[in-house]
Design a protein around this nucleic acid. Structure first.
Lengths: 203, 203
DNA sequence: TAAGTAAGTGATTACTTACTCACTTTCGAA
DNA sequence: TTCGAAAGTGAGTAAGTAATCACTTACTTA
């Protein structure tokens, strides 16, 4: 007999991610997955009911490991700005290692194909925003950040900035290191978080 | 006989955009397009050699009209910050009206399927960045913006922020008005562009 | 008004691909 | 050692879909 359920499932998920990174979702057929794992195509369906279920597992994997990555080495006693800087750095480092992420994120597949997947993506985003908002809030209370900071809006824009950069990374064939952008992003964000003069509005 | 070439092509492009907005790219079959236009499926191929060619035309339409939108009412004598503010506002207003844009932008279709389309997307992005960089440069020389502003990086991040927000808009089923975000984005960006104290770096 | 041409079509093809099924192999526990 | 169940498979099905083709219709113009 072959390998036990759990092991095979992981292999299939991993193979799917690898193929997605290389080829883009559309070309990841169940046949291709089977070939990569080294099993027959129908065997894939012993472990996942449908093709969509495989991608649901992929998204699950990404979500789980993304949060693991951005939470690793979290120290609540550190200054908020350091917490946030590290979070961004870790997130970019993680995504930089997994090109499947933008391919999955930017796929028409997710963008209507299956409402369940969409819902779970929304959940991941919500959770991320909440996390960043917390840090911002804490920093605001600390006095580290501007006291007129709109924490949630800011969190949303930080997330958007990163996601947009990931899109760019993908569109430009991964021709720059995401990880290396962390510092410049941080420089970009500093005035948003810390500037003292509450701003020459509109004018 | 039917309608003349040009008119039909426009109808097909329009129908494709409408369907894409409603259904996502994958479900936009040549049959669906034909039905929407009110012609037979093979007739579509009288006007476009392949299905990809239709989407190429869609991207062309988007690019053309996006630049028309962001350039409309451009006045070189206006202050740079006003120019940039209006550009962002107009861009968001335009995208807000065309839900097909995120569906096309965030499609695995583009993300490997056809290198030509990818190249043309890169070109649109380059052109956009160049435009924003110019405005930032001008504002920097004017003394309106920080004199230590990295204009190109900033332009890239502004573009990323907007694209990321468009992704969010799409993932959340268009449940907020993009256009209404323009002002808060501008508030978010102001400290980046104008802050005087050249920043409490890293610390 | 006749001819040439562009637009339009029904029928079909060629192909891809998720998924099923009946059957076999292998493992682990009793 | 036996036996039940889980993992595995070859062969096939069903459904969808881009693209082709031979043919028709109708508009334009000489």
């Amino acid at each position: 007999m072959g390998k036990p359920q759990e092991e095979r499932r992981k292999e299939i998920v991993q193979a799917t991610m690898d193929l997605t990174a290389e080829e883009g979702i559309k070309r990841v057929t169940t046949q291709a997955i089977a070939d990569r794992v080294g099993i027959a195509q129908p065997t894939v369906f012993r472990h996942f009911k449908t093709r969509d279920a495989i991608f649901a597992a992929v998204i699950g994997w990404i979500a789980e490991n993304l949060f693991k990555a951005i939470s690793s080495g979290f120290n609540p006693n550190e200054p908020s700005d350091e917490q946030l800087r590290k979070l961004i750095k870790r997130q970019l480092t993680f995504i930089n290692k997994h090109r499947a992420i933008p391919k999955v994120l930017f796929s028409d597949f997710l963008h209507l194909e299956s409402p369940k997947l969409k819902a779970s993506l929304q959940e991941v985003m919500n959770r991320y925003i909440k996390r960043v908002t917390q840090i911002l809030q804490q920093g605001k209370e600390n006095g580290e950040f501007r006291n007129d900071l709109d924490t949630e809006k800011t969190a949303i824009y930080i997330a958007a900035l990163i996601q947009g950069l990931v899109l760019r990374w993908s569109v430009y064939e991964f021709n720059f290191s995401l990880e290396d952008e962390a510092d410049s992003i941080w420089q970009f964000l500093l005035p948003v978080l810390k500037s003292i003069n509450s701003q020459n509005q509109i004018n």
